[in-house]
């Protein structure tokens, strides 16, 4: 057995819900970010996806963050801001570099949700959705699992009952 030690694992003890439902959560995050973000742009400067793209790396960091904040305000945002939002791959390097009590990773995600028109604002871009997402999951289950495993592992008891509204 290895004698090296790592940081002890953290089991997330999940707390009680802060709000009711996913939309309410993203809306609340949107308001929190707008209240706290100072547009210092430290998150942008450490982002491997932004720095890995020649056009974004050459962009003015403040302009990029301002664009994201404008999207959250329901405005068009700057081209740099919109490009950064669409490029975010959730590396999460930004998290430790934000001096405010907010998550820049969540900021970019909520900005994408807003820009996709999912929180009541006009859509700024469209994302390709895979219409076969679940068809493929079911197909692969039929290829890789036994019928008994499919029944036991993938059919939730609730799926056999009437759905809650």
């Amino acid at each position: 057995m290895s004698e090296r030690s790592s940081t002890a694992p953290v089991r997330s003890t999940l707390g009680p819900p802060e709000v009711e439902g996913v939309k309410a959560l993203f809306q609340r995050e949107r308001e929190r970010i707008l209240a706290y973000c100072t547009q210092c742009a430290r998150c942008f400067q450490v982002c491997p996806m932004a720095q890995g793209d020649p056009a974004l790396a050459a962009a003015d960091p403040q302009r990029a963050v301002r664009g994201v904040i404008e999207i959250l305000r329901g405005q068009d945002g700057t081209p740099e801001g919109l490009a950064w939002v669409q490029r975010c791959a959730r590396s999460g390097v930004c998290e430790a570099n934000c001096p405010e009590p907010i998550s820049p990773k969540m900021m970019l995600r909520v900005a994408a949700i807003v820009a996709l028109g999912q929180l009541g604002d006009p859509p700024r871009y469209a994302a390709r959705q895979d219409p076969d997402l679940f068809n493929k999951v079911h197909a692969f289950a039929r290829l890789t699992l036994t019928p008994e495993e499919i029944e036991r592992w993938t059919v939730a008891p609730a799926a056999r009952e009437p759905r809650e509204s």
Partner: peptide, 21 residues
Amino acid sequence: VVGGPDYCCGNVKDANLTAEA
């Protein structure tokens, strides 16, 4: 063991928040 669409987290559905919710 549980998995498949009955247990989908919805993480990839930000472009359809109603479905994600």
